[in-house]
């Protein structure tokens, strides 16, 4: 059991690190595309037609990939009175319920996100002229990594909602 836990945490370390970098890159892409939009319109006087759509696409990926990192750090906000004032097994039970709720929601998002990704594949994304499935795919993909992050946080608990002071 312990070695299984350790193995899972090792897996999480790799995936969550990679996904965190990918989400950061998505944010950087959004910034670059947004700045390109301002520059091309104002300085070069030839407005880009794809930049706005790229910003939206990049940010969808940023949020869904960022979810893994957020869950791993326990950073999603909650009204955590019950958790803070409970101890021992009760505290652990609350954490378990929160984990199962989160996993259930992620399963829903994975399942129906996957179905949507398939169903909308013939729809084009205006501005980028690619299938909108490239946007919808962020939901099932993000849900998988988010589930790893959520489980890892249960096994190795952190609540940076409280500790992430700036």
């Amino acid at each position: 059991m312990r070695s299984l836990t350790a193995a899972f945490l090792r897996l999480d370390k790799v995936t969550t690190l990679a996904v965190g970098i990918a989400a950061s890159v998505a944010l950087a892409v959004a910034v670059a595309a947004g700045f390109w939009q301002v520059t091309t319109r104002f300085l070069l006087e030839s407005p880009a037609t794809w930049s706005e759509a790229l910003v939206r696409l990049a940010l969808i990926w940023m949020v869904l990939l960022g979810l893994a990192v957020t869950l791993r750090q326990g950073a999603l906000v909650s009204i955590d009175i019950a958790h803070r004032y409970s101890t021992g097994p009760a505290k652990r039970a609350i954490e378990a319920v929160a984990l199962f709720s989160t996993l259930f929601l992620l399963a829903v998002l994975f399942w129906f996100g996957w179905e949507m990704t398939n169903r909308v594949r013939f729809q084009e994304m205006a501005g980028l002229e690619i299938s909108i499935s490239w946007g919808y795919a962020a939901i099932p993909v993000g849900a998988v990594f988010a589930a790893i992050g959520a489980i890892a946080n249960f096994l190795d608990y952190r609540s940076e909602e409280l500790e992430a002071a700036v």
Partner: peptide, 8 residues
């Protein structure tokens, strides 16, 4: 010759 600017 216009600079078409798509925008929400």
């Amino acid at each position: 010759g216009v600079l078409p600017t798509p925008m929400a």
